[in-house]
């Protein structure tokens, strides 16, 4: 199976899942117990997709497949035209827990990926000042100027999550994977961070896979929303969001927005009942 054959109707796919099945162990596979089943999906380069579904539906499994942390039991995963065979360095990840290192300052936390990923790793020591300047600029774009030398535990939850997103983006990945990144935040902070993410994406146009159970979040941010079923996870619906960009929070109060959210809500309600 070639990348060209896997391409969407108008452009070559960036992320391409073809009939992907994953069981966590050989025994589970033998018992036909899969975490995700028959996932087929492809995204354009620069597309922002969101995956929604009831909890425990295999959304996080999907993330592990896309990053190469897990290999599919059946089917193929292709990213940027190449089959995924191991962890992909063109990815940045952020989770619901900010997972910052408490013994490092915010700046040093953001710099951590550069100490690990090539090509930065090789010249990290010589060019540390340059990279630190880059990290400071990035932190400033998410509103964290002045907090670079604080420790994570001196920051609020929302600030920690901003720093965590900066850490995911510092090595300029082509793809950002977010696993319920705003799930632990209060409603106001969450909406603020939606806009932070929107602005970063608008400026840099990386690919995003956002896993969430907040339908408003998915509809507000994404180009396309995929609905997953309960375990074993399957993609039940692909819903392109045609709301015009740039979007701001006012759009979330429009009728068109509510209609889409309702539609998705009904779909997920049906899954939970079924």
């Amino acid at each position: 199976m070639t990348a060209a054959a896997a391409g969407g109707p108008d452009a070559p796919a960036f992320v391409d899942f073809r009939e992907v099945w994953l069981a966590y162990s050989a025994e589970a596979a033998a018992r036909e117990e899969f975490a995700v089943e028959d996932i087929t999906l492809s995204t354009r380069d620069g597309e922002f997709i969101a995956i929604v579904g009831p909890s425990g539906c295999g959304k996080s499994t999907f993330m592990k497949l896309a990053t190469g942390l897990k290999r599919p039991t059946r089917g193929t995963v292709t990213v940027a035209g190449a089959p995924v065979t191991g962890p992909l360095k063109i990815m940045g990840m952020a989770f619901q827990a900010p997972t910052l290192l408490p013994w490092r300052t915010t700046l040093d936390n953001v710099l951590l990926p550069l100490e690990i990923v090539q090509p930065y790793r090789a010249d990290f020591r010589q060019r540390r000042d340059e990279y630190a300047a880059r990290a400071r600029r990035l932190l400033a774009t998410v509103g964290l100027q002045g907090y670079e030398d604080r420790f994570p535990w001196q920051l609020s939850g929302g600030m920690q999550q901003r720093a965590s997103i900066c850490r995911a983006l510092i090595h300029e990945p082509r793809m950002l994977l977010l696993d319920e990144p705003f799930g632990a935040l209060d409603a106001f902070t969450r909406e603020e961070l939606w806009n932070v993410l929107r602005d970063l994406w608008t400026a840099q146009r990386f690919n995003v896979i956002l896993v969430t159970h907040d339908l408003r979040e998915a509809v507000y941010l994404a180009d396309t929303v995929y609905v997953m079923s309960r375990r074993p996870g399957r993609i039940l619906e692909r819903r392109p969001i045609d709301l015009p960009r740039p979007r701001d929070l006012d759009v979330t109060y429009t009728e068109a927005f509510s209609r889409i959210v309702h539609e998705l809500r009904d779909r997920i309600g049906a899954i939970r009942r079924g």
């Binding site: 592990k64 990053t67 942390l69 962890p87 360095k89 990840m93 990926p113 090539q118 090595h171």
Partner: peptide
Amino acid sequence: DVLRVLGA
């Protein structure tokens, strides 16, 4: 996971 994705 964050680090392993980076090739750590």
